[in-house]
Amino acid sequence: MNSLNNRTVFITGGSRGIGRAIALACARQGANVVIAAKSDTPHPKLPGTIHSVAEEIRAAGGQALPLVLDVRDEKLVRERVDEAAEHFGGIDVLVNNAGAIRLTGVENLKASRYDLMHQVNARAVFLCSQAALTWLKASDNAHILSLSPPLNLNTKWFAQYGPYTTTKYAMTMLSMGMAEEFKRYDIAVNCLWPKTLIATAAIEFELGGPQMMAQGRKPEIMADAAVSILNRPGTSLTGQALIDEDVLRDDGVTDFEQYRYAAGDRPLLPDLFLD
């Protein structure tokens, strides 16, 4: 495997949860990590800001650049990507981690919430990838990694929360398209999704609270899988919607108990979109 040492990784929504875990995993390999998120000041309920994560990145052995970014703002996306590239001398990796969720059907979902999910999920993959493309072309091992699921057309995934499902699937479809479109530039484009629920604020506040978190895994499993993907050379792996556990099993990992969020033997819950 190649190392991420001295490579520049631009992560959206990286101030907490899976994004933070990926940032720290990259930092431990000596990466320059750009934390691009909205959380400039502490949230009363949610720990972590771009600045606190930047300190953790430096402590883990990486270089950090915290940037305030709302991925819905096209002009700001371009400015922040260019600022990061100029600061570190380029961009090698884009991780589309920022996300919005509301598990509600069409009947009861406000249009404004649908717009938010579309903009933060699908549209941001388009905007950020397009903005980073010039810099990724110049890298000798460029990757785009989006946190979105394999396409599963079982209607149960559309029945209760079709709006959210379609925005996440759009991320995957855009990634599949970019994998083919950018192959000529030797830019690898993949998606990554967890096999089980990941214990994050989204689970705690949007889905099922602490009880559901206890049936999930730590964000670190996604981080370890992401780093494995980002270490692959060139386009040896591209156009795939990958599952974290499968990636790590391919690397020879057999002990997944280390990733369990809560001690005990409660059954882990599979994540959305996986039958």
Rank of each mutant, 00 (worst) to 15 (best):
A84I: 04
H51E: 03
G234W: 07
L127K: 04
R113T: 14
R260I: 02
L269D: 06
T12V: 12
C191S: 03
A214I: 02
T134H: 15
R7K: 15
G90T: 08
L76R: 14
T134Y: 15
L230C: 08
C128H: 00
A241K: 01
R184A: 03
S175M: 13
L133S: 13
L103V: 08
A111L: 15
Q119Y: 13
F126V: 13
A84D: 12
N32P: 00
H51P: 04
A54C: 06
L46V: 12
N2I: 10
A241Y: 01
A214K: 09
P150G: 14
G89F: 11
L103A: 11
H143M: 06
G209N: 03
A132K: 00
G177D: 03
A27G: 13
D246K: 09
G208C: 06
T134I: 12
F256D: 12
V120G: 11
A262T: 10
D70M: 05
A124C: 10
T12W: 07
S52C: 11
I198T: 14
T134A: 15
I35K: 08
A170R: 02
L192E: 08
P270S: 11
I203P: 02
L46R: 10
T235S: 05
M173V: 13
I18W: 03
R58A: 13
F182L: 01
E180C: 00
L153W: 14
A111V: 15
A64Q: 02
I91P: 05
D115T: 14
F273W: 08
V253I: 12
P194E: 06
A223Y: 01
G89E: 09
L174S: 01
I91T: 04
F273I: 03
I91E: 06
T41W: 08
F182G: 00
L230S: 07
P66C: 03
H43I: 00
D271I: 05
A122E: 15
S228Q: 12
E86F: 10
L24I: 15
K218V: 07
L24F: 07
R78K: 11
P270T: 08
D246S: 11
R260L: 00
E206S: 12
I18P: 08
H87L: 02
N121G: 12
V81M: 02
K75P: 05
K168A: 04
Q240W: 00
T8M: 01
I22K: 01
M213K: 13
T196R: 14
V95Q: 02
E74M: 09
P149H: 09
G252I: 02
